[in-house]
Design a protein around this nucleic acid. Sequence first.
DNA 1: GTCTATACACAGATAGAC
DNA 2: GTCTATCTGTGTATAGAC
Lengths: 216, 216
Amino acid sequence: MSASASASDTPAKAAPRRSFRERMHQAREDAIITTVNRLLAEKGYEAMTVDEVAAEVGIAKASLYKHFPSKEDLAAAAMVRVMERARAFIAERRGLSAVAPIEQLKAVARWTMEVQLDGEMPSLPSENSTLRTALIDNKAYMDGLMEVSDQLGEWIGAAQSDGSLNPALPPIAVLYTLYARACDPVLGFLKTGGLFDREQIVDLVLSTCFEGLRAR
Amino acid sequence: MSASASASDTPAKAAPRRSFRERMHQAREDAIITTVNRLLAEKGYEAMTVDEVAAEVGIAKASLYKHFPSKEDLAAAAMVRVMERARAFIAERRGLSAVAPIEQLKAVARWTMEVQLDGEMPSLPSENSTLRTALIDNKAYMDGLMEVSDQLGEWIGAAQSDGSLNPALPPIAVLYTLYARACDPVLGFLKTGGLFDREQIVDLVLSTCFEGLRAR
DNA sequence: GTCTATACACAGATAGAC
DNA sequence: GTCTATCTGTGTATAGAC
C-alpha cells in the first residue's frame, strides 16, 4: 500500500532504487552480524548482551530489534552466516577433485581452526542452551548443517575406503571430531601461551587430531 | 567471646562436639557443591542461577550466601573439588609404578571423560569469563592445577623418552590436549546420538585422541 | 545459620515521537 | 528505521527477624 505512495519513480529505475535501499539494509545487517559474531566468539551467548551489540554497532538497541526480533535470532543469524561460510569453503574445495579425500578433511579442519583463532567462530555453549533449541528450529542453519555434514560424510567414506582414514572409526564419530575443532580450547590455550604463532598452533592441533598423540 | 558462653561442656568432650557441628557444616557445603557441580556441568556458569542452586539444595538463598559469599566463590568451590578429585586420582595411579607412562596418561584422559559423561565436570566457558579471573586468584585451585600439571608433565616426558608418545609434540601441547578432554563436546554428541554406550564412547574418543583419525 | 522479604542492578524487549 | 525513554522480569546480593 505505502509502496505506491511515492510512485512517481520512473518505472525503469524503480527496481534499482529499491535494490539500493536493500543493499544498505543488507550492509547494516551484515555489520550487526559481524559484531554479534565476534562477541559470540569472545564471551558466548549468555554473556553477550544486546546493549553491547548495539553500542559496538553504533545504533540504538531499539533499532537492532527492528532488524532482528530477539537476541536468539541475532545469535542464530551469526551462526547461519558461519555455516554459509563453511558451505562456501567446502563448495570451493569440492572443485579440486584431484585432492585426496583425507586432505580435504584436513583442509576443512584447518579452515575451522583458523576461523576460531581469528575470533570469528561463535561457539555455542555445548550443552542445553536456549540457543540450541532456537537453532534446531532454524531452517537455514539446519539446511546448511545437513549439506556440510553430507559433503564431509562423503569425504569420510572415501578416505576410509582408500585406507587413509582409520576404517575402524564410525563415520559419525569422525564427523563430530571434525566439528569439535571449531571449539577446541587447545587453540586458545596455545595462543595465550605465546610460544607459537598462528600457523604452528594450527599445525600442532591438526597433527594431534589426525596423527594422534601416540608415536607412529 | 560467645565461644565461652556455653562453656559448661566437659573439657574432654568439647572438641568432639565442635567436630560434630563442623561435620554437619561440611556435609551441607558438600551437598551445595555437588549441586553446583552438576548445574555447572549442565548449563555453564552464566546460565546457572543462585536461586536454582538454593532450590535444588533445599535451603533458602540467603543461607547459601552464609556458606559462600558470592556466586563466583560457589563456582570456584566446585572447580576446586573437581581439581581435588583429579589430584586424588593421579596420586592413586602414581602408586602403580609398573604401569607405562603413556598408559597413565590414557588412564587420566579416560577418567576425565568419564567424569564429563557422568555430568560431573563443570566446564568453564573457555574464553574470558568472570569465573576465569576468580579462579586465577584462587590459591587452592591454582595449587591443584599446578600439582596435576607437574605430575602429568612427568608422565609426558617419560612417555616421550620411552618412545610411546610422539616426541615431536611440545609437552605443553600434549598437556593441553589432555585437559581439553574435560570439555570435549564429542562425548555429548555421541551420547545424544544414542548409538553407543558409555564405555564405547570413551574408547572411541580415547582412540581418536591417542591414535588419531588417520589409519596406522 | 536459617528463614522471609526486599534492595539494587541490569538485561531483554517495547512504546511512541520523529 | 532511528531515536529516547520506559516497562517488565529476573538475577545477585542483603536486611533483619528468629
